[in-house]
């Protein structure tokens, strides 16, 4: 095979495999960094993670059950600023928690008197100053729970 042929195949292979490799890194990040931080709460096994760029937002809808203790963990890769998140009542949009008021803490512990569907709103902050190429990194939203 010619040099050009090899170069061509390498280019195509890297284009096709790059996203797969980045997603695999995202899983490792969620597992090693975020999941382990849920202790002593038990991770439920669900996986919610994606590559987000600065300024990008995400929302997650989930039902939480009464008389259980929960920890929500929202983790961002090290190249991103601490992730902003809010927890909102889906029925009326009332903000129940805003981590910007808690020094951008990555986790929130709570319990409920009655079961509720809540929305977790996440945003990757934009650094100060103009940036031509926004950073991209993995953001994971994981849940842990435990009995009383």
């Amino acid at each position: 095979m010619t040099k050009k042929g090899l170069l061509f195949i390498s280019l195509v292979a890297s284009m096709l495999l790059l996203p797969v490799a980045m997603n695999a890194q995202c899983k490792q990040f969620a597992k090693n960094t975020c999941k382990s931080g849920l202790k002593p709460y038990q991770h439920d096994g669900n996986y919610h993670a994606a590559l987000l760029i600065e300024g990008e937002e995400a929302e997650l809808y989930k039902t939480f059950y009464s008389d259980r203790n929960y920890r929500i963990g929202v983790c961002g890769a090290h190249n991103l600023k601490p992730i902003e998140f809010k927890v909102v009542d889906t029925r009326n949009g009332k903000v129940l928690y805003d981590n910007s008021l808690k020094d951008y803490d990555w986790k929130w512990d709570f319990t409920l008197e009655s079961s509720q569907q809540l929305k977790i709103m996440v945003k990757v902050p934009i650094p100060e100053g103009n940036i031509d190429e926004p950073e991209e990194g993995c953001v994971a939203i994981l849940f842990g729970s435990r009995d009383d």
């Binding site: 038990q42 669900n46 919610h48 809808y61 989930k62 100060e128 100053g129 103009n130 940036i131 926004p134």
Partner: peptide, 28 residues
């Protein structure tokens, strides 16, 4: 928006939001 990106890029980001739906896992 807290500044940094140009207005057009920021506008695109503001209208593109990832949506996750979380179901109870078998363990939960």
């Amino acid at each position: 928006a807290s500044g940094g990106l140009d207005a057009e890029t920021q506008a695109q980001l503001n209208t593109a939001k990832r949506i996750f739906y979380s179901l109870p896992s078998p363990l939960e």
